[in-house]
Design a protein around this nucleic acid. Structure first.
Length: 944
DNA sequence: CGGATCACG
DNA sequence: GACGTACGTGATCCGA
């Protein structure tokens, strides 16, 4: 029996539109935009790769739309009439789609007066009649009508953007009906893009419900008569004709003449020319490399090096960020080596030195790098070419016999030349952790690369829809390699049963640890080339990569905290909260848990009968600060007591108690952990403990800052950027008035007050300040109205005045949004991207949320870039001045905290100020000065 | 484990 | 027809 034939029909036109909106605006060496073509090319490649695979294509053709007119226009002149013209930089890419298809030596079918959908339908049916299987490469919902099986020949669909097969179940999931009824559903719901009317007011949900219930469009329309009186009934009766015409419009023409016979679509491998010439012409160098690597032809993709497999293609989108799974040599854990002798270790080190690129991972007994003891090291030099070097296994009694291991000192001596070699790149996943662990053994690792940071610089913000946009190894491995690494909990257990890694038997430990290095190596090969292609090199090389060892060093420094001071505060707060609690209970007339917003709400609004209680969607009264302040103003003494109680309880539990516990017994200091990938905008975040939210705004809270102190003989120095985000907004939106004010060193909120209200008073300045921030955060009249306690109309008037007084701001907002809508990401002045997959969401709240975030991201992100650059340059600048002993301890978004001998303040201050003020240069020249304020003192509080 | 609250820039 | 309205974080507590 002959092998089953399998025809792939590629819907080229719809693909290019989607690719355009999902991919960055790349241009080729001649400046022609080619982003969408690049996506299309990688997609074709992937399909050609699948040749010879089970279910892979034996025949393939690309189907294109010839022009916008079709027989449907004769039925309904408005058909597709309100389609906006394609974007300017997409137009020149249309002909390139044909070029790309020909470059792959694939047939390309288009026909005057016929839409691609009709050709696809006709070819699909023709092939099905021959008993072939058919896969339609498209996600067009109209085509879903075709899905199904006739006499053992099936038609399915493939959405390459989402790597998703669509068969009957998927269609049913989407439309709630069998494929053959999809046309009926479409006829009811209409399609605004194609301008198919459907019935107004009936969306996908109602349409599929009606069709599922009645079995067909006609039946549903007939049934309308007997429905009970409703909007729906009216609409069905009134618009029957529209629905019936829509049914004709969505019907696919399955009997077109076939311009070329099916047999001509036979796939026969892809000759290297003209493909290579095409790739070269358009600067697709990574694909060109793949072509060269694959013995000169992509027709045997399995011979390609796995690391050269699909690079970008269809990364994260509003609808998901799964990439097509690249071809790769499958992970084979049996190939890993457990290194137990010095001889073998030296052999690995020698090979690594020769390889120039080695992935490294350390295993320890703690997540806290500052307390973690080294348990082992793994290395990877290529796919499955990895080893684990156990160093601290079996230190407890769980091992009957301690396993054979290279003694720690000897092993470190052997590894040191590798880890410190200038000419060998060490690749880590979250290298900051490993750097800190190894620093405890006096090993200064470098140079390093970091797959977590690379991923962040490429994909920050993707997966805001909860589909997974994280940068952890397991997630990256799933997403990019299609491989699930052994979960940590499978090796060490979880909860109470968790054992330290050092107690894991060597075979299991090797499988886990060597795999981590293996996966890191693969991820690096996969992600690193994308940086250049997608314009991520600048931010990675100039901002984030240099920062890794700097932040690692800051974490190791830590900051001294006065335990006695905190303990005293804890006691005071405890006494005070206890006293308040009693008073609150008396006022309430019963005892209850003050810390429970639920109980408090019931007491305030039900029992005590206060007015204006608002329940949120959790069905619970809101009792937050603003509510309690209102009640207090209305003369409810209990509200003030609760506010006071809350403040003290918060300070005690979050700060005075927790910080004491965070003091490292070895160093006597507190070592936070900064996340370099925590904030989508590029900011750092701080955890365990968070030292970026230590109180400062109230006097009581500031007492906690007094506990942060220098060593004897030293002082703390705090250097703050003044109004950096507003300055950047003035520069980026090019607002003359604001730039001038900053140039003259004016009080910017006062200046805003003058412009807005004509005079500066306490009140107008405060309002101006609120408005200034509101602008940075993407304003709405209601939001501003709430903050300023005015009517939305008045807030709108203020916004209008603001835009009028500061021309440029509105234009900046519009332009930013337009760019983000088009490209899917925002960009900082230094080229940092933040993706907004929901910017074009149909859900208004979702979309508007993304819009506000997108307005803010370039500003907040540029500020983050600038302070990061200052941090990376800081120690070299200080060292040059003989101040290498100055320690940079903390970063709080626009502030750096240093510790230094009292006598060095005068020498260090101007250097710190200069490095911070000039941190944008030379990459970016700002049209506003960056102001830096410096203070010193015997505590963090005193330094402000 | 999610929601509410509140600490910071 | 109602929703929900300022950006970015992390820690703690309560209660299901």
């Amino acid at each position: 029996m002959a092998a089953q034939q399998h025809l792939y029909l590629v819907d080229g036109s719809s693909y290019i539109f989607r690719a355009y909106h999902r991919l960055p605006p790349l241009t080729d060496p001649e400046g022609t935009p080619v982003g969408a073509v690049y996506g299309y090319t990688t997609m074709l490649w992937k399909l050609a790769d699948d040749l010879d695979k089970a279910d892979g294509p034996t025949h393939l053709a690309v189907i294109l739309d010839k022009d916008s007119q079709s027989f449907r226009n004769e039925i309904y002149p408005e058909y597709k009439a309100n389609r906006p013209p394609p974007p300017e930089d997409l137009v020149p890419q249309f002909p390139l789609i044909r070029d790309a298809t020909r470059a792959f030596s694939l047939p390309c079918i288009e026909e005057q007066g016929l839409e691609a959908d009709d050709l696809i339908a006709s070819y699909a049916r023709a092939a099905q009649r021959e008993g072939w299987n058919v896969t339609i490469v498209s996600s067009d919902k109209d085509l879903m009508q075709l899905v199904g099986e006739v006499d053992g020949a099936r038609i399915d669909m493939l959405d390459t953007m989402k790597s998703q097969r669509i068969y009957i179940e998927e269609v049913e999931e989407k439309f709630g009906v069998k494929p053959e009824l999809v046309g009926d559903v479409l006829a009811l719901m209409g399609d605004s893009v194609d301008n198919i009317p459907g019935i107004f007011g009936i969306g996908p949900k109602t349409a599929s419900k009606l069709i599922a219930e009645h079995g067909s469009l006609t039946a549903a329309l007939d049934a309308a008569e007997d429905m009970k009186k409703s909007k729906l009934k009216e609409r069905l009766l009134e618009n029957r004709a529209d629905a019936e015409m829509s049914r004709v419009l969505v019907e696919l023409k399955e009997d077109c003449d076939l311009p070329e016979p099916l047999e001509d679509f036979k796939l026969d491998g892809v000759p290297p020319e003209p493909l290579s010439a095409f790739l070269e012409k358009h600067g697709f160098t990574s694909l060109l490399r793949r072509l060269d690597a694959g013995r000169g032809s992509p027709d045997r993709p399995n011979n390609l090096h796995p690391e050269k497999a699909t690079t970008k293609g269809d990364a994260g989108t509003a609808e998901g960020n799964r990439q097509p799974l690249p071809e790769m040599e499958a992970v084979d854990r049996s190939k890993y080596e457990t290194v137990q002798t010095l001889e073998r270790l030296e052999a690995w080190v020698a090979r690594a030195l020769a390889a120039q690129v080695v992935a490294v991972d350390t295993e320890t007994n703690s997540l806290d790098a500052m307390r973690a003891d080294l348990v082992g090291v793994s290395l990877a030099l290529g796919p499955n070419d990895a080893c684990y070097i156990p160093l601290g296994h079996g230190s407890s009694d769980m091992f009957a016999e301690k396993p054979t291991q290279v003694p720690l000192e000897e092993a470190l001596a052997a590894l040191r030349p590798l880890l410190e070699a200038d000419e060998v790149v060490k690749v880590f996943q979250n290298g900051k952790y490993d750097l800190n662990v190894l620093a405890r053994y006096d090993i200064t690792v470098g140079p390093i690369e970091d797959t977590m940071i690379i991923s962040f610089d490429l994909d920050a913000g993707r997966g805001q829809d909860g589909i997974g946009g994280g940068h952890g190894m397991d997630e990256l491995s799933e997403r990019h390699l299609g491989h699930t690494p052994i979960p940590f909990k499978e090796v060490c257990g979880t909860g109470k049963k968790q054992i330290p890694f050092g107690e894991v038997p060597l075979d299991k430990a090797t499988a886990y640890a060597a795999e981590d290095a293996d996966v890191t190596w693969r991820l690096y090969q996969h992600l690193k080339p994308r940086l250049a292609i997608e314009g991520g090199t600048r931010i990675y090389e100039r901002v984030d990569r240099p920062l890794i060892p700097v932040v690692a060093q800051m974490e190791r420094h830590g900051i001294k905290v006065d335990r006695a001071h905190l303990s005293r505060l804890s006691e005071e707060f405890a006494k005070e909260t206890g006293r308040l609690e009693k008073e609150i209970h008396e006022l309430a007339g019963e005892e209850f848990t003050v810390g429970s917003p639920k109980q408090l709400g019931d007491i305030l609004f039900d029992k005590l009968g206060h007015k204006g209680g608002k329940k949120g969607k959790s069905g619970q009264y809101s009792t937050d600060q603003s509510v309690l302040e209102r009640l207090a103003g209305e003369g409810a003494p209990i509200a003030n007591k609760v506010l006071e109680w809350r403040q003290l309880a918060k300070l005690k539990s979050t700060y005075t108690d927790a910080l004491q516990e965070a003091i490292n017994p070895d160093t006597g200091r507190v070592h936070t952990s900064y996340s370099l990938v925590g904030a989508q905008t590029g900011r750092l975040s701080s955890t365990d403990p968070n030292l970026q939210n230590i109180p400062i705004r109230t006097a009581i809270g500031r007492q906690i800052r007094e506990a942060f102190v220098p060593d004897a003989g030293n002082v703390l120095l705090a250097a703050d950027y003044s109004q950096i985000e507003l300055r950047l907004a003035a520069h980026m939106a090019d607002v003359e008035t604001l730039k001038e004010a900053f140039a003259n060193g004016e009080d910017i909120h006062a200046r805003t007050a003058t412009e807005m209200f004509g005079e500066v008073t306490r009140d107008t300045r405060a309002r101006a300040k609120t408005i200034n921030f509101a602008i940075l955060y993407g304003i709405s009249r209601w939001g501003l109205a709430g903050r300023l306690e005015v009517e939305p109309d008045e807030a709108q008037a203020m916004i209008d005045t603001y835009f009028q007084r500061f021309p440029g701001i509105q234009r900046y907002i519009m332009e930013t949004l337009e760019t983000v809508r088009e490209r899917g990401y925002s960009e900082t002045l230094f080229g940092r991207k933040t993706w907004f997959p929901r910017i074009n969401s149909k859900n208004q709240a979702e979309r508007q949320g993304s819009e506000r975030a997108a307005i803010n991201a370039p500003i907040q992100g540029t500020s983050a870039d600038i302070i990061k650059r200052a941090m990376a340059r800081m120690m070299p600048a200080l060292r040059e001045a003989g101040l290498g002993h100055v320690r940079m301890l903390l970063q709080v978004h626009d502030e750096l905290v240093f510790e230094l001998p009292e006598g060095d303040v005068a020498a260090a201050s101007p250097i710190i100020e200069r490095v911070m003020a000039e941190a944008a240069a030379p990459a970016v020249t700002l049209s506003v000065p960056l102001g830096v304020e410096i203070g010193t003192g015997k505590s963090w509080d005193a330094a402000h």
